[in-house]
Design a protein around this nucleic acid. Structure first.
Lengths: 110, 110
DNA sequence: ACAACATATGAATGATTGTTCATATGTTCA
DNA sequence: TGAACATATGAACAATCATTCATATGTTGT
């Protein structure tokens, strides 16, 4: 790391970077997309709002597992809940999700 | 899970879902964005191609750590390398990355 | 109030992963 | 060829995380 303009480049890029907190939050946000169970849950919710047991059936996992993962999605404001009788109906909170999905798909299908 | 049209909904949504392999790949792809070190590396590379030691300086981590993470980014085709003398210069492989970033930022800043 | 159902949550476990240290590989220059 | 530098990689460790089981909470109808 001793060539002529190394320090200049480092300083310049450091200055132009978003602050560390923002990037940390950003990583946390994308972390949610990095699990196939959550991906499948979100994918199912593209169609319509669904109850927890419906989702569990669709993704083929325990109700408990799905509940835990829905909490993760809720904490990152990716889904919202609506109580109706005994059931909780979940739906997507944000229209960015579909676009992020599409871009991911474009990338892996290249 | 015993109300009238539960099974119909489950079947319908299952049919319209992308196949499991694709969604698994998609999760692996987003997993790469789910770490703040990798996020910061990619962010630094938005400006220009950089050598490994430059990146290590910018993100403030060991050269070894950065090398390991660059390998992860390479495996998912997010960066490419160019050897020049003793140094390896990394740059972004794909223009989707910036857009995915922007959408993530839009989400967390809402 | 009680039974039946739907959902949420805490604890425990196994698996995955990010980081570091030590070292190997690759490259240049003398 | 050997020294100096840049990068890559394997092993080890600590930390994080997804899943499951058991159980608690919440809701409806009798």
């Amino acid at each position: 790391m001793a060539h002529e303009d190394h320090q200049d480049i480092v300083r310049e890029i450091k200055e132009n970077m978003p602050d560390a907190d923002t990037l940390f939050e950003l990583a946390d946000f994308f972390k949610v997309f990095g699990d196939s169970t959550r991906i499948r849950i979100m994918c199912a919710l593209f169609e319509k709002e669904l109850s927890v047991c419906c989702i569990a059936d669709i993704v083929g996992m325990e109700q408990s597992t799905v509940s835990h993962q829905l909490r993760v999605l809720r904490q990152e404001n990716l889904v919202k809940v609506r109580r109706e009788g005994k059931q909780s109906y979940y739906s997507l909170e944000d229209e960015h999700i579909q676009k992020i999905f599409e871009m991911g798909l474009e990338h892996i299908l290249e």
